[in-house]
Amino acid sequence: MLKLANVTKSYGENIAVHSASFAIDKPMMVGVIGRSGAGKSTLLRMLNRLTDATSGEITFDGLNVTALRGTAKRQWQSQCAMIFQQFNLVPRMDVVSNVLHGTLNRRSTFSTMFNLYPDEDIHRAIDILERLGIAQHAPKRAEALSGGQQQRVAIARALMQDPKIILADEPIASLDPMNAQVVMQSLRDIHEQDGRMVIANLHTLDTARRYCDRVIGMRDGAIVFDDTPEMLTTSSAREIYGADASFSEATTSTQIEPDETVQRRLVDIAAQ
């Protein structure tokens, strides 16, 4: 389905991504890990065409994504939804309107200016919010929600695009461990229930192992690991992060002890 062939992005003499190549032949949940500055975000931005590759080729179902321009490029971006670390919501706008922004690519300028939405889209937006456990917050301003709730609104907005691929750029980096698990489980459910491809940039190894079918490790712009979560050993992690024997996974863990208090709190967060 998705194939990258020697994709490179350079900024002058600085190479952000160097000759990245991999293929994903079916919908799966893929985690991209690596230290800050490894090229993870640049890789996702090239997939979505927010950033143009300097060289190489990206194809999806035979479509040369790197060659798209104008309307064709915008159509691709509607099929390749982005979720960002900082949510990118309109803070003073209500939640359901933020979700409906996922339809902007197929609406007229007039309807966009006057905030006019078909009833069908409004009902669908509320259904998606219900699916993510936050429909009761639909009339509230986005800024009134917690970080975890706002990220689920951002996920709902992405789903409104009905994309073939969801790209999540550090979706849990600004969240506490409990909300991080709720958001990651939401992305996992979307992959399993909808059959959508999900590619997420992650910092924590335990998260990649728990939620992903495949893990790609980047170091200094190059792919240095591409395998199943089971193969992501401590030794492999040291190679990805360029660390020595003192490297400890515990410093990046989002794991929560599964006691009764935590389980009740997770249920409460999901219901909010």
Rank of each mutant, 00 (worst) to 15 (best):
L4D: 05
A16F: 11
P27Q: 10
S36G: 01
M28Y: 01
L4V: 10
L43D: 04
V7D: 10
V32G: 02
N14C: 08
R35M: 10
L44V: 06
N48P: 03
S36N: 15
L44I: 09
L43Q: 07
G39D: 11
K26W: 00
I15S: 11
G31F: 03
G31R: 00
L47N: 04
T42C: 05
N48K: 11
K9W: 05
L44K: 05
G12R: 12
S21I: 12
E13D: 14
L4T: 01
K40A: 03
M29F: 14
H18F: 14
G12Q: 08
R45G: 02
A5H: 13
G12S: 12
M46G: 01
K40V: 01
F22G: 08
V30S: 00
H18A: 14
V7L: 11
Y11A: 11
G37E: 04
M28F: 00
N6F: 04
M46D: 03
L43P: 04
A5I: 13
I33Q: 00
G34F: 03
N48S: 14
L4Y: 09
L43A: 05
M29D: 03
M46Y: 02
M28P: 02
N48A: 15
A38C: 07
N14L: 14
I15M: 12
I15T: 15
N14E: 09
G12M: 11
S41N: 03
H18I: 03
N6K: 15
M29K: 08
A20T: 11
Y11E: 09
A16E: 04
V17R: 01
G12W: 12
K26P: 00
E13L: 12
G12T: 12
V7M: 13
I33M: 09
L43E: 07
V32K: 00
I24H: 01
R45H: 13
N6D: 15
T8G: 09
N14A: 14
P27I: 12
V30Q: 01
M28A: 13
P27G: 10
G34A: 10
G12C: 12
G39M: 08
I33C: 09
N14Q: 13
I24C: 02
N14H: 13
A16H: 10
L47V: 11
I33E: 04
V7N: 11
N6W: 00
G12F: 08
T8A: 09
I33D: 05
M28G: 07
I24T: 10
A38L: 08
N48M: 06
G31K: 06
V30L: 13
G12L: 12
T8N: 11
L43S: 05
T8Y: 12
H18N: 15
I15V: 15
G12D: 11
M29Q: 08
G39E: 07
A23N: 13
S10L: 01
N14G: 00
T8W: 07
A23Y: 02
A16V: 06
L43I: 09
F22N: 00
S19E: 15
A5W: 03
N14W: 07
L4R: 07
L44N: 11
G31M: 06
G39P: 11
S41Y: 03
I15D: 10
N6Y: 07
V17Y: 01
P27L: 12
S36H: 03
A23T: 14
S21E: 05
I15R: 11
P27V: 07
